[in-house]
Each structure stands twice: as structure tokens, then as C-alpha cells.
């Protein structure tokens, strides 16, 4: 059996998945990044290796998410792609007719519009993180509700409270205000979901023509309250894919398959990297006024990658000879 790995290193969570040649998800894992991407990537590789049957061959690996570059170097990626492309590729595989993707993750939210299987437009939140997963987590904690039951509680409400959702700070103070006025928690929670959807549609999706079929993915799609609020606002059904939490990773795996089938080889360093020592070092280059921050990644004390320089002069690293063709 051969598989392709997809790794999505997000701001809040790290997702990893293995798909087979038929593009079916074999196994996947979801972990909190906790500010330690290197550690979580190694942990994820260990988990995936443990889940895969004996004798499986890794024929390609792809990375995405804000930590895609770092992850790409660590594992020896065949494809390093941004999360918009990755999400779109995964959604298209699942629902070829998809026209709109709503994706809300830990710290960003995005909308992707497609037409005949091609991305034609996208937008990401720019100056505001209200409505993203981190904000919901925080409010759930403040209300003392486990995040898992947040959505279900919202569905119980009959009289949602209107909450200002423009900005996370205002939303929070408005929520506290409504609490102090004596509103029921479930009504506040549902009001919050509606406010966040309003915020998303008015800011991120501003001026975009949202047409069905709509896929709702990312961590926040687990929240049934958010799904309902989107459906109410849009006036049609919103589909949540079963793999919604790991769609980015699925996309990365599909892109890896595309890349590896083209080159007929993989750069994957093997699951062994989970046990290797990786270290990073940063320094400021003062050769010009840009004062670029250069990042150096070393594997077992050998420099393997460097980036961050505007002019590109630090980018070059002597190519290594010992890259295994194909993983274990």
C-alpha cells in the first residue's frame, strides 16, 4: 500500500492526514500547535506511523498552513502550498460542483469562490480576528461552557440576543453587558453565533456572490450553532464535510500526490525525522537597511534551510546528498 501525507500547520492546531492512491483518507490526526510547531510535527508523524498498517510506503508529502515552510523542510515536502489552494483542492475532490467554501480556523477566516472547479476569487480576514476559533474558545471559557457543547446550546435558544460582532473587543463587552442585563446564556450564545456570521459576511465576504453548494470547513465548522447561523443568513443549506477539521491537510496530501506523480519521486525524509534533532536559529542581517530577520533550520547540527532575506542571498544552502528516494 502506498500513501501520501498532508501536513497542515496552523496557528492554533496542527493537522496531519494520510490518503491512499484512491484519494481516500486512511488516517488523520488533529493536535494543538501550542506554539511548538516542530514538536507537533514530530508528534504527528509518530501518531500517523503508528496508525498506518505495516509495510506502507509514503510516496509523497505536502505541507500547508502558516507553518508550511518550516514543516516542508522538516519532512522534505514535495509540495509546499498556501492554505487557500489546499482547502479548495480538498473541497473540489469531495464536492466537484462546490461554488463556495467558508473556512474558519483558529486565527483566520476565509471565503473561496469557485466556478467550474477553478478558484475564481478568495478573501481572508485582514484587520480583525473576531469570529475565528480562538475568539469562540475564549468566550466559551468565559461563559464556562465546554467548547464542544457551545453549538448545541445555541440551538436551544428561541430568543437570540443581538450582539455587536464588528470587533472581538466590542463583542466581548457587549456580551458581558447582555449577561448583566439578565439574558439567558443560551440566548447570548446563539446571538454570538449570529453576530460572528454577520461579521464574516459583512467583512470577509463583502461584495462576494455566495452561491450553493456551500462547504463550511475548518475547526469552527464543528460548531452546529455557527452552521445554523450561516444557513439562516444565507437562506440555503451549508454542508460540513466529515473531514472538515483536516481539510487543509487532505488538500496538502492531494497536492503532494499531484507533485510526486509528476516527478515520480519524493523528497520525504522518512518517518525517522520524528526522532531527529531539529534546531532553529534567527539573526538579523545588517548588510543593508532592510535588516532582514534570517531563520536557519538545522537537522542534527547540519544546516538544511535558511529563509527570510529579501535579497535572497541567505537562501542558498548546499544541497544534501543523503535524501532518501521514497520513505519507509
Amino acid at each position: 500500500m502506498e500513501v501520501f501525507l498532508g501536513i497542515d500547520v496552523g496557528s492554533v492546531s496542527t493537522k496531519m492526514t494520510a490518503i491512499d492512491r484512491q484519494k481516500r483518507v486512511v488516517t488523520s490526526t488533529y493536535m494543538m500547535t501550542m506554539g511548538q510547531p516542530v514538536k507537533m510535527i514530530r508528534e504527528g508523524l509518530r501518531r500517523i506511523r503508528a496508525e498506518l498498517p505495516e509495510g506502507v510506503r509514503v510516496s509523497g508529502v505536502g505541507t500547508t498552513g502558516s507553518g508550511r515552510q518550516l514543516a516542508g523542510v522538516l519532512v522534505g515536502a514535495d509540495s509546499v502550498k498556501n492554505e487557500i489552494t489546499a482547502h479548495a483542492v480538498a473541497a473540489l475532490e469531495l464536492v466537484p460542483a462546490v461554488q463556495t467554501i467558508l473556512e474558519i480556523g483558529g486565527q483566520d477566516s476565509k471565503i473561496i469562490l469557485l466556478n467550474d472547479g477553478v478558484v475564481v476569487d478568495f478573501a481572508m480576514n485582514t484587520v480583525c480576528a473576531a469570529g475565528t476559533g480562538s475568539f469562540l474558545d475564549r468566550q466559551a471559557a468565559r461563559l464556562n461552557i465546554p467548547i464542544e457543547s457551545f453549538g448545541a446550546l445555541a440551538l436551544e435558544s428561541r430568543n437570540p440576543v443581538r450582539i455587536a460582532g464588528r470587533c472581538a473587543v466590542f463583542a466581548e463587552s457587549d456580551m458581558i453587558h447582555k449577561q448583566q442585563m439578565g439574558h439567558e446564556t443560551k440566548d447570548i450564545v446563539r446571538g454570538l453565533c449570529q453576530a460572528l456570521v454577520r461579521n464574516f459576511l459583512n467583512n470577509v465576504a463583502k461584495g462576494k456572490d455566495i452561491r450553493p453548494p456551500v462547504l463550511f470547513q475548518g475547526g469552527v465548522a464543528s460548531n452546529v450553532g455557527m452552521k445554523r447561523a450561516f444557513e439562516e443568513a444565507l437562506g440555503f443549506e451549508v454542508t460540513i464535510p466529515e473531514q472538515h477539521r483536516v481539510m487543509g491537510a487532505v488538500g496538502a496530501a492531494l497536492l503532494a500526490m499531484e507533485a510526486a506523480l509528476k516527478t515520480k519521486t519524493t523528497n520525504f525524509r522518512g518517518f525517522g525525522v520524528a526522532d531527529l534533532d531539529f534546531s532553529t536559529r534567527t539573526f538579523e542581517c545588517h548588510d543593508c537597511a532592510n535588516n532582514c530577520e534570517i531563520v536557519e533550520i538545522s537537522m542534527e547540527k547540519t544546516l538544511v534551510a535558511r529563509w527570510g532575506s529579501r535579497c535572497g542571498k541567505w537562501d542558498y544552502v548546499e544541497p544534501r546528498e543523503d535524501r532518501a528516494a521514497g520513505g519507509d
Binding site: S66, K81, E83, I84, D116, G117, V118, V119
Partner: peptide
């Protein structure tokens, strides 16, 4: 800069895939 970079990458990707299609 990282956020801008992601958007640019995605945009160029979009344009290339769209052109191919």
C-alpha cells in the same frame, strides 16, 4: 508580511490554475 505572502501566493496560484482551465 506572512499574511500578505499567503494571499499573493494563493492569488498567483488561482491565476495559473484558472488560466490552465
Amino acid at each position: 508580511e506572512a499574511g500578505i505572502r499567503t494571499r499573493l501566493e494563493a492569488f498567483v496560484d488561482l491565476l495559473e490554475r484558472r488560466r490552465t482551465a
